[in-house]
């Protein structure tokens, strides 16, 4: 589903963010990208959606080589990928319902489709009763659920989450992790970047560890710290 083949990336006037990264993520996997701040986790995710171009190597996403994709095709790549961030990135003047519907409207989905999908997805994330609230009337955990709903409403093949629980307390974090696990069970490939040990340790999923832009560990059913497999 996602394959990095000797990928490197250096931002202008900066040290290398990724160096010769080779990784293969299968359809339906749940993968943690771990490593300290500045190790290249966010860059890894931004290369998948082609928010940044890579400098070298090949990146294959859903059967397409991202580097060879002409700019006009990039939006269609992104329709297969849902994204969730630490800071939620919701639209403050829109309700919960409108925030999720927006993601469908702007890719030209029919009104009928929007009306049928949005309530369903909001039920799934446990916000069926708060559809008319605005983001500032919700807790952090609830806002992140809206963001997950928006990322998932178009049933993407891949869900990328960049430190999605970075701003949440442990109980709320556990709820979000259960939600991501559930989405993964529907068949969506989930890639989550985090530097929170407890989150990774609790899940026992595949762990790819980055350090200064290189892969230093790729372990199935891993925990955050480097221990015997």
């Amino acid at each position: 589903m996602i394959r990095f083949d000797h990928v490197s990336k250096t931002y202008k006037g900066s040290v290398p963010a990724l160096q010769d990264v080779t990784v293969d993520i299968q359809r339906g996997e749940f993968v943690f990208i771990v490593g300290p701040s500045g190790s290249g986790k966010t860059t890894f995710l931004r290369l998948i959606t082609k928010e940044e171009p890579s400098d070298g190597g090949e990146i294959w996403v859903a059967g397409k080589e991202v580097g060879a994709l002409p700019p006009w095709k990039v939006p269609y790549l992104r329709r297969n990928i849902g994204c969730v961030f630490q800071d939620y990135r919701l639209l403050p003047e829109r309700t919960v319902y409108e925030n999720v519907a927006f993601a469908l409207e702007v890719i030209g989905r029919s009104r009928h489709f929007v009306k049928s999908q949005v309530p369903q997805i909001l039920e799934l994330v446990g916000l069926g009763k708060k559809m008319d609230r605005r983001p500032n009337e919700l807790s952090g955990g609830e806002q992140q659920r809206v963001a997950v709903a928006r990322a998932f409403v178009n049933r993407p093949l891949i869900l990328l989450a960049d430190e999605p629980t970075g701003n949440l307390d442990p109980a709320t974090t556990a709820g979000i992790m259960r939600l991501l696990e559930r989405i993964n069970q529907y068949g969506t490939t989930v890639v989550m970047a985090t530097h929170q040990h407890d989150v990774v340790d609790a899940m026992r999923k595949r762990v790819i560890e980055l350090d200064h832009g290189t892969v230093v560990r790729d372990q199935a059913r891993g925990i955050y710290g480097m221990v015997d497999a």
Partner: peptide, 17 residues
């Protein structure tokens, strides 16, 4: 800018934006 960022994120075409 917020709307535009979300539109790019979810795959709205350039012309749509």
């Amino acid at each position: 800018r917020r709307e535009v960022a979300v539109m790019k994120l979810v795959g709205a075409t350039n012309w749509f934006i």
